[in-house]
C-alpha cells in the first residue's frame, strides 16, 4: 500500500512537471477563479464590518423622572441586563449627565450662566441600552413600556429612532441574503470552471487510461497520479490567490477607513488570514481532487 502510494505521488509529480505548459495554464485559470472567490469573501466581510459598525453606533436611551430613586433605576438596569436581547446597559446618573453636558458646552458662556442661575440640576438620569440585534430594540421598547416602570420612566428614545433602526435592519438583511446568494452562485461558477479546466487537462491523456488498464493497472493506481496533479493545481493556485489578495488588501485597506474610521482593515485581514488561507486551500484542493476523480472515472471503463 505504502509502495503504491509513493509511486502514485511520484507519477503525479512527474506528470505535473512534464506537462509544464498544461499545468501552468490550468493553474492560471484556477488561480483567477480563486481570486474571484476570495475577493467575494473579502467583499462580504467588508460589508458586514460596515453594517456592524453602523449597528454599533445605535442605542436607545431611557430617561427617568427627576424624582426616580437611584436604587430603582439600578434595579431596572439589572432587569434589563438579564434580558437575552440586551448587549449592554450603561447607567448615567443625573450628576454624570450634568458633567457631560458641561464638558460638551464649556465654550458656551450662556449655557454655563444659565446653569449657575438655575442653581439645580435640570437633567435626568438615563440608561443607554445596546441590543444584540437591530430587531431586538422593539422587544426592549415593549419591555420598558410595562406598567412596573411607568412610574419612573419619563421617555424612551426608541420612538424617535424607530425609522432609522427599521431601515438599517432591512439593509442588513438584504446585504446578508444577497451576500449569501452571491457566494453560492460564485462558488458554483468557480466549481464549474475549475472542473472543466481540469477535465480539459485530463482529456489530453484520455488514451493513456485505456493503455494503463490493458497493462493491468488498477483504477486506484491509474487515477491516483491525476488526483495528485489536481491537488497540486489547487494547492499552488490557492497559495498564489491568497498572496495576490494579501497584496491587494495591503494597498486598499487605508481606503476602507474613509467609510469605517474605527476599523483597521489590514489588521482585521491579518487576524483572519489563517482561516481565509485554509478556506482557499480547501476550496482549491478539494475541487482539484474531486474534478480529477470525476474526469478520470469516465475513461476507466475499459
Amino acid at each position: 500500500m505504502f509502495t503504491n502510494l509513493s509511486r502514485i505521488i511520484k507519477y503525479g509529480l512527474a506528470g505535473f512537471w512534464r506537462n509544464g505548459w498544461l499545468s501552468t495554464a490550468t493553474i492560471a485559470v484556477v488561480f483567477l477563479v480563486l481570486v474571484g472567490f476570495g475577493g467575494l469573501l473579502i467583499f462580504n466581510s467588508v460589508t458586514n464590518i460596515f453594517i456592524s459598525d453602523i449597528q454599533d453606533k445605535i442605542d436607545i436611551s431611557v430617561y427617568f423622572k427627576s424624582d426616580a430613586p437611584e436604587d430603582q433605576i439600578l434595579n431596572i438596569q439589572k432587569a434589563l441586563q438579564s434580558l437575552a436581547e440586551v448587549k449592554s446597559v450603561d447607567y448615567i446618573s443625573r450628576d454624570q449627565a450634568l458633567e457631560i453636558f458641561k464638558t460638551q458646552h464649556q465654550a458656551d458662556q450662556n449655557v454655563s450662566q444659565a446653569l449657575d442661575e438655575l442653581n439645580a440640576n435640570p437633567l435626568s438620569a438615563s440608561l443607554n441600552i445596546k441590543a444584540n440585534e437591530l430587531k431586538d430594540y422593539s422587544v426592549i421598547d415593549s419591555y420598558l413600556a410595562g406598567d412596573a416602570f411607568k412610574e419612573y420612566i419619563s421617555k424612551v428614545s426608541y420612538t424617535q429612532n424607530v425609522n432609522v433602526i427599521d431601515r438599517l435592519q432591512r439593509v442588513k438583511s438584504i446585504a446578508q441574503q444577497g451576500g449569501f446568494i452571491l457566494i453560492v452562485i460564485i462558488s458554483l461558477l468557480a466549481a464549474l470552471i475549475i472542473f472543466n479546466t481540469i477535465r480539459l487537462a485530463i482529456y489530453s491523456s484520455r488514451e493513456e487510461f485505456g493503455i494503463m488498464r490493458l497493462v493491468g493497472g488498477s483504477n486506484f493506481f491509474i487515477r491516483g497520479p491525476y488526483m495528485i496533479e489536481g491537488m497540486l493545481y489547487g494547492l499552488i493556485s490557492g497559495i498564489l490567490s491568497v498572496l495576490a489578495i494579501t497584496i491587494f488588501v495591503y494597498y486598499t485597506a487605508p481606503y476602507l477607513r474613509i467609510f469605517v474610521p474605527d476599523v483597521n482593515g489590514w489588521s482585521y485581514y491579518t487576524s483572519h488570514l489563517a482561516s481565509f488561507f485554509i478556506y482557499q486551500l480547501i476550496f482549491g484542493i478539494g475541487l482539484g481532487v474531486i474534478s480529477s476523480y470525476i474526469a478520470v472515472r469516465k475513461y476507466l471503463k475499459i
Binding site: N4, R7, V215, G216, G217
Partner: peptide, 8 residues
Amino acid sequence: AFAMEAAG
C-alpha cells in the same frame, strides 16, 4: 516499469 508497478 509501469506494468510491474501496477502488479505491485
